[in-house]
C-alpha cells in the first residue's frame, strides 16, 4: 500500500506545477536545452541547435494542429456560430437578419422560461442531495473489498455503458404505476408506492433517480482511483491515534480526496443543469410542465417551433450561467485551499 519513499519525498517538496514540468520534459531535450548558451529560456540560441529543436518538435506540432483543427471545427466554430445566431432571425434560404435582443425578449416572455430554469436548478440540487454522496460511498465500500474489487468496478460501471435512451425507456417500464417493477417491489415489502413520472409532484425526483443510477459509475471509478493514491501510513497513524472508521473517513479520506470531490461536484452541476435525455424520452416535459428543463426548451425552440434564434439565445444564457457559476465556484474553493 505504501508509496515508495523516494517518490514521496519529491511529492512533498516540489510544488505541483513545477513537479509536472520536471517530469514531463524528456531527458534528451533537457540535455539539449541545457547545452544552449544563454540559459534555459532565453533566445539567441545557435541557429543549428534551434533548427534541430524545431525539427524535433514538428511531429508534435503536426499532431497539435490536427487537434486544433478538430476543436475549431467541432467545438469553437459552433460555439461562435451559436453566439451569432442568438442575435439573428435565422433563415437558411433568404439569409438571416440581425434582430438585436429580440430572441432574448422572446425567451424571457415565454411563461415556461422560469419553470424551465427552476426545474433544471431543482434537478441539479436533487441530483446533488441524492446522487453526489452515493458514488463516493460506493467507492469507499468497493475499496474495502480487496479481492472482488475488479468485479464490483465492472458492475458499478455497467449502467454507464448502456445507451442513455435505452436506460430511460427501461426505467419507464420500471416506473409503471400498476404492475411496474418498482411499485411491485415496494408493495411486496410493505412500503408505500408512488405514481413516479405520472404525477407532477414526483416526476422530477423520479428522473433524478434514473440519472443518478445511469451516471454514478464514472464518478465511482474516479473516486476509486483517488482513494488508491492515499498513502496507507495515514490510515495506520490515524488508527494508532485511536480514530474509528468514521473519524478516519472524515480526517483522512475526505481531505485526501478533496480536490477530486470538488472537481466532480462542479462537473456534476454542469452536467445536470444540461439534463435532456431523461425528460425528453420519459416525460416530454410533463406532467404539467413539471419536467420541462432548459435544454428541453432549447430543443422545442429549434426543432418544434423552428426558432433557431431563440434556441441559440437560451443556449447562450445557459453557457453564461454555467461559466459564471464555475468561475465563482473555482475562486471560492481555491481560496480555501492550503
Amino acid at each position: 500500500m505504501a508509496a515508495p519513499t523516494s517518490r514521496r519525498r519529491v511529492t512533498d517538496k516540489v510544488p505541483a506545477r513545477r513537479r509536472r514540468s520536471v517530469e514531463k520534459v524528456p531527458a534528451e531535450r533537457r540535455r539539449l536545452r541545457d547545452k544552449l548558451p544563454g540559459g534555459r529560456r532565453e533566445g539567441g540560441q545557435l541557429p543549428a541547435a534551434r533548427w534541430r529543436l524545431l525539427k524535433q518538435d514538428l511531429t508534435a506540432y503536426g499532431f497539435l494542429c490536427a487537434a486544433l483543427v478538430v476543436f475549431a471545427f467541432f467545438a469553437w466554430w459552433p460555439a461562435i456560430r451559436n453566439v451569432v445566431l442568438s442575435f439573428q432571425e435565422v433563415n437558411f434560404v433568404r439569409g438571416s437578419s440581425w434582430v438585436g435582443l429580440e430572441n432574448f425578449q422572446y425567451i424571457f416572455d415565454d411563461p415556461l422560461f422560469a419553470t424551465a430554469w427552476r426545474n433544471s436548478a431543482l434537478f441539479s440540487l436533487y441530483a446533488l442531495v441524492l446522487g453526489f454522496g452515493v458514488p463516493f460511498v460506493t467507492a469507499v465500500l468497493i475499496n474495502e473489498f480487496r479481492h472482488v474489487r475488479a468485479y464490483f468496478r465492472v458492475l458499478v460501471y455497467l449502467p454507464v455503458m448502456l445507451p442513455p435512451v435505452v436506460v430511460a425507456l427501461m426505467w419507464r417500464w420500471f416506473y409503471q404505476p400498476d404492475g411496474g417493477l418498482i411499485n411491485e417491489v415496494l408493495g411486496t415489502v410493505g412500503l408505500p408506492t408512488s405514481e413516479w413520472i405520472n404525477s407532477p409532484d414526483t416526476s422530477l425526483i423520479a428522473l433524478v433517480i434514473v440519472s443518478t443510477w445511469a451516471n454514478m459509475g464514472s464518478a465511482t471509478l474516479i473516486y476509486l482511483a483517488a482513494l488508491q493514491t492515499i498513502p496507507g501510513e495515514l490510515y495506520e497513524s490515524a488508527e494508532l491515534d485511536g480514530a474509528g472508521i468514521f473519524k478516519r473517513l472524515w480526517h483522512v479520506t475526505i481531505p485526501q480526496t478533496r480536490f477530486v470531490i470538488l472537481m466532480l461536484l462542479l462537473m456534476q452541476v454542469i452536467a445536470t443543469m444540461q439534463v435532456f435525455t431523461e425528460p425528453f424520452v420519459m416525460t416530454g416535459g410533463g406532467p404539467q410542465d413539471s419536467t420541462v428543463t432548459v435544454m428541453l426548451l432549447v430543443y422545442r425552440y429549434a426543432f418544434q417551433y423552428n426558432n433557431f434564434g431563440a434556441a441559440s439565445a437560451m443556449s447562450l444564457l445557459l453557457l453564461l450561467v454555467l461559466a459564471v457559476f464555475s468561475a465563482a465556484y473555482l475562486r471560492v474553493t481555491r481560496s480555501r485551499q492550503i
Binding site: 405514481e195 405520472n198 404525477s199 410533463g286 406532467p287 404539467q288 410542465d289 418544434q304 417551433y305
Partner: peptide, 19 residues
C-alpha cells in the same frame, strides 16, 4: 402555430389525467 398551441393543450390533458 399548431405545435406551440399543442404544447399548452398537452398540459390540460396531462392535468386531467394525472391529477
Amino acid at each position: 402555430s399548431a405545435q406551440e398551441v399543442y404544447a399548452l393543450l398537452d398540459n390540460v390533458v396531462q392535468g386531467v389525467l394525472t391529477d
